[in-house]
């Protein structure tokens, strides 16, 4: 039992998964409550679709439930769960690309992404915020996957370079290089919008 738990403080993620491994289902519910929003946000930024993002995150939690014993207390729990979600999101993107190649006549992915479907999904009440959010999301979507994932992890989820390195399984230097190149590419894509804002 960790020091925090003995002192009655908020249990760490690692404490919770350990308790869940020992059969405490309430600990699993706490993990879900702690991670559902940030994972849905991450998956949404990766996929550009709220429903798909929720499906991916639900599947993530189902896998955590099924494979709870697979987690070993050598890595941070957040690294483990982000890796699962990231892999599922990448698989979904590959599936979409195949589907898009097979059916060019159907509604395009980009068109679908920016349908104004459900504004209640996020706190985007202001029209300017909504527009800005969608413009940036479109630019993120257009990045190559390897830049997209590190930009989302670093600039939206605000993870450390070290944690990103562990999740994506690439060296620290490569993470930094990709983040830098990804940001420069985003700048190129948003140069017109940035100019408008400055004016």
């Amino acid at each position: 039992m960790s020091k925090e738990r003995r002192l009655g403080k908020t249990p760490s993620d690692e404490d919770l998964i350990l308790q869940f491994q020992e059969g405490n289902v309430y600990a699993f519910e706490q993990i879900v409550n702690r991670y559902k929003d940030q994972l849905v946000n991450f998956a949404f930024r990766f996929l550009g679709d709220v429903e798909d993002a929720e499906d991916i995150v639900q599947e993530t939690f189902l896998r955590v439930f099924r494979k709870k014993k697979a987690y070993k207390n050598v890595a941070k729990f957040s690294t483990w769960i982000y890796t699962i979600t990231g892999n599922l999101a990448k698989t979904e993107l590959r599936r979409r690309k195949r589907r898009k190649l097979l059916s060019i006549s159907s509604l395009g992915f980009e068109d679908k992404d920016f349908e104004l479907t459900d504004t209640k999904k996020g706190p985007e009440e202001n029209v300017d915020d909504l527009l800005q959010s969608r413009v940036i999301q479109k630019a993120i979507d257009s990045l190559p996957d390897k830049f997209k994932e590190v930009i989302i992890f670093r600039d939206l989820q605000e993870l450390s370079y070290e944690e990103i390195s562990k999740i994506v399984k690439i060296p620290l230097g490569t993470v930094k290089s990709r983040v830098n190149r990804g940001r420069l590419k985003l700048q190129e894509k948003l140069i017109g919008y940035l100019k408008e804002i400055k004016e």
């Binding site: 929003d37 995150v57 985007e124 605000e158």
Partner: peptide
Amino acid sequence: MLRNIPAIKAS
């Protein structure tokens, strides 16, 4: 701008 993007929450 990236940091200020409103976070999407689970339904």
